[in-house]
């Protein structure tokens, strides 16, 4: 591998852009196809398919074997609400290699003492989320119960096609939320992307158990549904 290809690969990853490295396994020849360049590539179909599945693989094209190294951006998790469940969720999600950020405008909650190992931002979601830059490789869990804080985050997450959007609250709470989002112009299909009540039904009781249920649902969303390619996002 040429050092400049490795450099580009690392740069694309840092910029949270997908890229696919194409290696001709017989000759060793390589090229890097960035997300924006896929459509124009002669191997577009195969590259797009692998990127969609988020899986590197060997493919045979016209009698040659190529290896496609798929590099999708690392998954991020933004948790709205620096609450008790979030403390457990932050630690667990970190172990599962999510890049975790906690957002809560209430400074008493959003302190580094309560969240020693992850990024904590004491700000309103509608101010800070555009700065973070939501994308299809970001998941959002809204855990405050407070529409003033959760709703703006959910709206931005829906617009950004986040791979996971979950919101804490009972069915009754969620019904009211659906009304508010409908009034704000979101379609039934869009609103249907919100996981609520949040988490897989594992009978969780304690905050840590609820965190397990939420994190399981997040991993399920990430792995079962193929991530949208940048191409799709742009379309």
């Amino acid at each position: 591998m040429k050092l400049d290809i490795l450099k580009s690969l690392n740069e694309e990853r840092r910029a949270r852009r997908a890229a696919v490295l194409v290696t001709d396994l017989s000759s060793g020849a390589q090229r890097l196809v960035k997300a924006a360049e896929i459509a124009a590539d002669p191997m577009a179909e195969a590259i797009d398919k692998q990127l969609r599945m988020g899986k590197s693989a060997s493919v045979d094209i016209e009698g040659k074997t190529y290896f496609l190294t798929v590099q999708a951006p690392p998954a991020r998790l933004v948790v709205i609400g620096a609450v008790h469940v979030s403390q457990a969720l932050a630690e667990m999600a970190r172990l599962v290699d999510f890049d975790v950020t906690i957002v809560d405008p209430r400074t008493a909650f959003a302190s580094e003492e309560r969240f020693p190992n992850v990024r904590v931002i004491a700000e309103w979601p509608d101010k800070v989320l555009p700065e973070i830059g939501l994308d299809p490789y970001t998941g959002i869990a809204a855990l405050t119960h407070d529409p003033k804080i959760d709703d703006p985050a959910l709206k931005l997450a829906l617009q950004a096609s986040c791979f996971y959007i979950g919101a804490l609250g009972s069915k009754k709470t969620h019904a009211k939320r659906v009304e508010r989002l409908t009034a704000a112009g979101f379609s039934q299909e869009q609103i249907g992307r919100i996981h609520a009540p949040i988490g897989l039904d594992i009978g969780a009781v304690s905050p840590a158990e609820i965190a397990v249920s939420v994190l399981s649902e997040i991993v399920l969303s990430l792995r079962r549904k193929p991530l949208r390619s940048e191409k799709e996002k742009a379309a």
């Binding site: 591998m1 490795l6 690392n10 290896f67 690392p74």
Partner: peptide, 27 residues
């Protein structure tokens, strides 16, 4: 744990430090 990101970044920094470096990939 080292993520794929750390791994390739490490390869680049070893190379820039003048070391001979190889990458092994499960194909």
């Amino acid at each position: 744990l080292a993520t794929e990101e750390d791994i390739l970044a490490q390869a680049e920094s070893w190379k820039r430090a003048g070391k001979g470096v190889a990458i092994a990939t499960v194909v």
